[in-house]
């Protein structure tokens, strides 16, 4: 894990740009879906402990909707699109015209619609990333879960778990006007993917 602790600022900036491009395209796709401008925060790239990662979405017990897809190809990793229950309901209203009374009780159709929205956004995140890096990246079929954040995010930490107790996370938050729709993208490339990402972007990777 020392490898990642010693990343110079410059490398962190490169990863921020990776998050920026991916989430930027996804935010554009979302804004087309809802027909409104979507704002996006500057991506954060941080080496965080497992606990700190769940704190980012409000703690291990916090209820979230998450679309998860495993990225395969030259730079494998895990991608999460995370929504608060309120944001999920708001998104369904806007895009699919589905009225939901309680955020905790989405039916099969609502879940399926949400999964598809997540799929579109995550796909656009990933394809722009693949274009940018010229690396092949294929998404697996996305899966949606509504559950405790800790239980969901642990899935994305397994690859890092074999190496240590921290993971390098590229985190981008976006929101619409009055924070009605707030969502987060977490990209957690596998540890082995970092050298490939850097090299593909012409950044020398020599463990410094």
């Amino acid at each position: 894990m020392e490898l990642f602790k010693n990343f110079k600022d410059f490398k962190m900036d490169v990863l921020k740009e990776v998050g920026n491009i991916g989430a930027g395209h996804a935010a554009t796709a979302l804004s087309q879906l809802v027909g409104k401008p979507i704002d996006m925060a500057v991506p954060k790239v941080q080496l965080l402990s497992f606990e700190e990662i769940t704190e980012k979405v409000g703690g291990a017990e916090e209820l979230v909707y998450a679309v998860f897809l495993r990225v395969e190809g030259e730079a494998p990793g895990n991608l999460f699109f995370i929504l608060t229950p309120e944001a999920a309901v708001s998104l369904l209203n806007r895009i699919a015209g589905i009225e939901v009374s309680s955020a905790g009780e989405l039916g099969e159709m609502e879940m399926s619609a949400l999964n598809e929205i997540g799929n579109i956004l995550a796909g656009s995140y990933l394809s722009s990333l693949a274009d940018f890096t010229k690396l092949s990246m294929f998404p697996t079929v996305p899966a949606l879960a509504m559950d405790m954040a800790g239980a969901i995010l642990a899935y994305g930490l397994l690859q890092f778990g074999q190496m240590g107790d921290d993971a390098l996370l590229i985190d981008t938050t976006f929101m619409e006007g009055h924070d009605e729709i707030e969502g987060q993208f977490f990209l957690i490339p596998d540890p082995e993917s970092f050298p490939k990402i850097f090299r593909s972007l012409g950044v020398p990777f020599d463990n410094d």
């Binding site: 497992f50 606990e51 769940t54 703690g59 291990a60 017990e61 559950d147 405790m148 954040a149 800790g150 239980a151 969901i152 642990a154 899935y155 930490l157 397994l158 778990g161 107790d165």
Partner: peptide, 23 residues
């Protein structure tokens, strides 16, 4: 008890871990 963590306790105490998924 956090993720990838362990602890012990006695008597009146409670030991808790949150958000177990595949763990």
């Amino acid at each position: 008890v956090g993720m990838a963590d362990l602890n012990v306790g006695s008597q009146e105490s409670l030991i808790r871990t949150t958000g177990l998924g595949s763990c």
